[in-house]
């Protein structure tokens, strides 16, 4: 494992921890899109089906279980916890996220590394992850005041994606036969979606003002 991959996994882990911290200690999910969290729960459930068929490493298994467990529990908290669910910006979080799923499924049926159930699900999870952040970005844009934890959550997620791109470049040059077009293209699309947010985040950080996205 190279440093970019490890740093990418760690920023991903931290993003989840930041979100759980917000939910557990502040008992608030204000500014967090349930739509995006539901998509992530579906992304990890469909991608990690190979937990049952392939063993890669203890690290890999533990991380998969963490991402599965945390994404499902975040959805549960936002939907059912009697305090947390009251802070959910239901009226602002109106992105019709289920409409993203059908095109991703069709694309996965057409473009996959192998036409088997696990491979189609794997490709589906990659396509869906690429667009899963959209409801969150729309919600951020609608929310006037973005609190620090929410801003940091999205920043960490974006950093995780950018580090994975560096990891692919590194692996391409250091490993034989390491070519994965599906992962790369969907990963790059996903990273580009964060570019706008990054821009405004660093502007607000540089000028030391509260993060606000233009309407």
């Amino acid at each position: 494992m190279n440093i970019f991959r490890l740093a990418g996994d760690m920023t991903h882990l931290f993003s989840v921890l930041v979100l759980l911290l917000k939910i557990h200690t502040i008992k608030s999910c204000a500014g967090i899109s349930l739509k995006t969290q539901e998509l992530y729960a579906i992304v990890f459930t469909t991608r990690y089906l190979d937990l049952f068929t392939t063993y890669i490493s203890l690290y890999n298994t533990i991380m998969k279980l963490i991402f599965l467990g945390s994404s499902i529990s975040i959805v549960w908290y936002m939907r059912h916890h009697k305090v947390v669910r009251r802070s959910y910006d239901k009226d602002q979080d109106t992105f019709r996220h289920y409409l993203l799923m059908l095109p991703c499924l069709l694309l996965a049926l057409l473009i996959n590394e192998k036409f088997t159930f696990l491979e189609v699900m794997w490709a589906f999870s990659l396509y869906l992850e690429a667009v899963a952040i959209l409801p969150q970005l729309v919600l951020l844009q609608r929310t006037r005041n973005i609190d620090n934890l929410t801003g940091q959550y999205v920043l960490l997620l974006g950093a995780y994606r950018a580090l994975y791109v560096l990891n692919w470049i590194y692996r391409y040059f250091t490993e034989e036969n390491y070519v994965h077009w599906i992962t790369w293209v969907s990963g790059i699309v996903q990273t580009l979606l964060y570019a706008d947010f990054f821009y405004y985040y660093f502007q607000s950080w540089k000028n030391n003002v509260k993060l606000q996205l233009p309407a």
Partner: peptide, 10 residues
Amino acid sequence: QEKPRSHDEL
């Protein structure tokens, strides 16, 4: 022997 695939990533 098949090389490990992208599936070793998360």
